[in-house]
Amino acid sequence: MADPLVIRGVSIDDTFAEAFPMRGARIILTAVNARWARIAAHTMTGFATSVIGCKCEAAIERELGPEDTPDGRPGVSVLFFTPDSASLQQRLIERVGQTILTCPTTACFDGLPDAPERMPVGKALRVFGDGYQSSKVFGGTRYWRIPVMEGEFLIQEDMGKVKGIGGGNFLILAETAEVALAAAEAAVEAMAGMPGVILPFPGGIVRSGSKVGAKRYKTMIASTNDAYAPTLRPITTSDLPDGVNSVQEIVLDGLDAPSISAAMRAGIDAACRLGVIRITAGNYGGKLGPHHFYLRQIMGQPTA
């Protein structure tokens, strides 16, 4: 058996996060200034925490300077994930159409130019122009110009689509709710802006991690993770060690496994602070998801 891994007094469980295949896209939003680019990104990625209820998972990947965007304006890179290929295109058409087309000064571009699979998002939205739209091709890339009351909305014809990963995670078990939240906030800050990864839950943190299905309500596809709910410790099969009174979870979606591993490494390291007792991860015994992120391996230690 391998020696226990302890980082700054925090025990790291010898377990793994079980993650699932997703389809992902990277969308570049630009605007007249960073404020409007942020507004566009927040609006587009709102209510996109979990595919369970939101049909997609999305969040800001990072902010971009004018030198990093196709139109030389401030921008934001957002990542989008859905469980299947067809729904990714549909969700993007809905969200770009309702939140970016409508948002003052914005333009919308693809952030995965090398992805061979393409989704005709701009091509679908062009018909808002009611026949007055026009397209331009520069360097083999087609852009649609859609006349609007403000002036003109510009959107790239197609967006790239790749096989991504959803559901990377780790749980922070702490002495108090204050410590758990502070450690989770530190983890989120450490992972902020890391390429190819998003944390789709509010502020990057989930307080209500779930288990598959429910014991009592058969129609529920997910319900409270009672094994980690401190208020239920004496009346359920609890996985909480003595001294733990609150748990926060970090959930990650990513464009590839190395991106998720790198972000988990940074996040777990930042979460190892005074008052945190243990860090573990959620899995289903490895039977449901093909992607397994072993915490010890991620932190540079061999697994047992």
Partner: peptide
């Protein structure tokens, strides 16, 4: 028609600079 700042020209000129 109007006086405005066409985003498409920002993309075009950026492309001409790069390519």
């Amino acid at each position: 028609a109007c006086v405005y700042r066409p985003t498409v020209l920002r993309v075009l000129f950026g492309y001409l600079r790069r390519a």
